[in-house]
Simulated assay, not measured.
Amino acid sequence: MQLYGEKRSRREVEARVGQLGQIGGVRRMTLTEGKSAGVEIIEVRTGAGLAFEVTPSKGMDISLAQLWGVPLSWQSPNGDVHPGHYDADGTNWLRTASGGLLMTCGLSHAGSPSVDESGSYGLHGRAHHTPASLVSVREEWVDDERIWGVSGVVEETAMFGSKLRLTRELTGKLGDNRIVISDRVENVGFQPASHMMLYHFNFGYPLLGEHTEIVLPAADREVRESGAPAMDGISDMTDVLARAARWETPDASIAETVYYHQLRNEAIDADGMAQATIANPSFPTGGVLGPVSVTLRWSADTLPLLVQWRMPGAGEHVLGLEPANCRVEGRAAEQRYGGPFMLQPGESTTYKLELIVG
């Protein structure tokens, strides 16, 4: 195990602590106050500075994430609202969305509210507000590495409707600031089912600062039409990319912008993964400013589109990097682009994502 800059064996680590929780590990707890009352939190500390909160009550998503006690994620003004307060109509998702490092958008629908022949769908679908079942945690030694894991199952079903099951496992090891997310979505019904999936990663202050650089993958790029008012003065795609790759001070008057980055072949590595990186040369840890980067990697075959939500507003001061299998105009609009993606009865698809902090 690599720990605090030194290579240690299992017995060397155990000799130096009374209990491994002194260094890091997994801990379960329940929130008790206000609209968050009853929300379960699974806290993971890597022992290398990264700590984050998995929320089984909200789709096995990730709320607050910190590096050495300094936030990496953006938290919404709602907090970790219990899913019992969720209202699926229209854009009411915004009243109970937690922000945090990850909000899963799906499973039947992601993006703007829409209506098609199968029914009415609210903003970003139900996954983020669906409690998980079969939740489990594990910590175990594998040779000299201490492995941790958190898993659960999220089901989106309806009588006479689609029946989708998400099985999620988050894994990593002590001494390593890396989160691996392995997802499998299966159509457990007996009719074909539409499946839209978007991983809404949310980054905030102080990772986002005036000197932060956003390194995006090679892609064909466009700006979502509804974000056009925020693009005043931008004349070509070179300017679009320049704005997408930088950050700025909070501006209460600014409008959100959504970019689509359709991955090119050269963006995909030998493992079939694409990546984007947020780099801050002056991130504060321990009272000292120094370089920190956060790299998001994802399986490009099943998530061929990176949606970028740029919102350097006041309060809503957040950058969303969102690997997806769909756009965000909604289910009805997705048909114009040959979608939505369909899962046949008994068919499944898998997603792999990694978050690396260093």
Rank of each mutant, 00 (worst) to 15 (best):
R178Y: 02
L170P: 03
E145Q: 10
T167A: 13
Q191C: 10
E155C: 13
S194R: 09
V154W: 05
R178K: 12
I181R: 01
G149R: 07
R126E: 14
V115K: 12
R165I: 07
R165W: 02
M159C: 10
L174H: 04
R168D: 05
H128W: 10
G119L: 05
V135A: 10
D116M: 07
G161A: 08
D183T: 15
L107E: 03
V115Y: 06
F201H: 14
N202Y: 02
V150G: 01
A132S: 10
D144G: 04
T167P: 00
Y205F: 04
A127R: 05
D144T: 08
V142D: 09
G204A: 02
N187S: 12
S182G: 12
V115D: 11
E145P: 15
V150W: 02
A110R: 02
K173A: 07
P131L: 14
D183V: 14
F203Q: 00
I179C: 06
E169S: 12
T130A: 14
E186C: 09
F203K: 01
A158Q: 11
E169Q: 10
F190L: 06
V115G: 07
W141I: 11
Y121H: 14
G189H: 06
H200A: 01
E139S: 08
H195Y: 06
S112F: 08
G175M: 03
G204D: 00
S194I: 06
S162M: 04
Y205C: 01
R168E: 04
P113A: 09
V188A: 09
G125A: 07
P206D: 05
G111S: 13
Y205I: 02
T157F: 06
M159D: 14
H129S: 15
S120R: 12
L164R: 04
R138K: 05
S133R: 13
Y205E: 02
L164W: 01
G175F: 03
P131C: 15
P206K: 11
W141G: 09
R146M: 09
P113F: 04
T171H: 05
M197K: 03
P113N: 08
P206C: 09
D183E: 09
N187T: 11
G106A: 09
W141R: 08
G149C: 05
N177C: 07
G149W: 01
L166K: 11
G106P: 08
C105G: 02
L107C: 13
G189C: 08
S151P: 01
V188S: 08
G125Y: 02
V115Q: 13
S112G: 14
L198K: 02
H200Q: 06
V188L: 06
V185P: 03
H109K: 07
H129F: 09
Y205V: 08
L123I: 11
M196D: 12
W148C: 04
F201E: 00
N202V: 01
N187L: 05
E117R: 09
S108G: 15
S194Y: 07
A132Y: 01
S133M: 07
G149H: 04
G172F: 01
E145A: 12
C105Q: 02
M197T: 08
S112C: 11
T171S: 14
A110W: 03
A127F: 07
P192V: 13
P192R: 09
F201N: 03
Y199A: 12
T171Q: 07
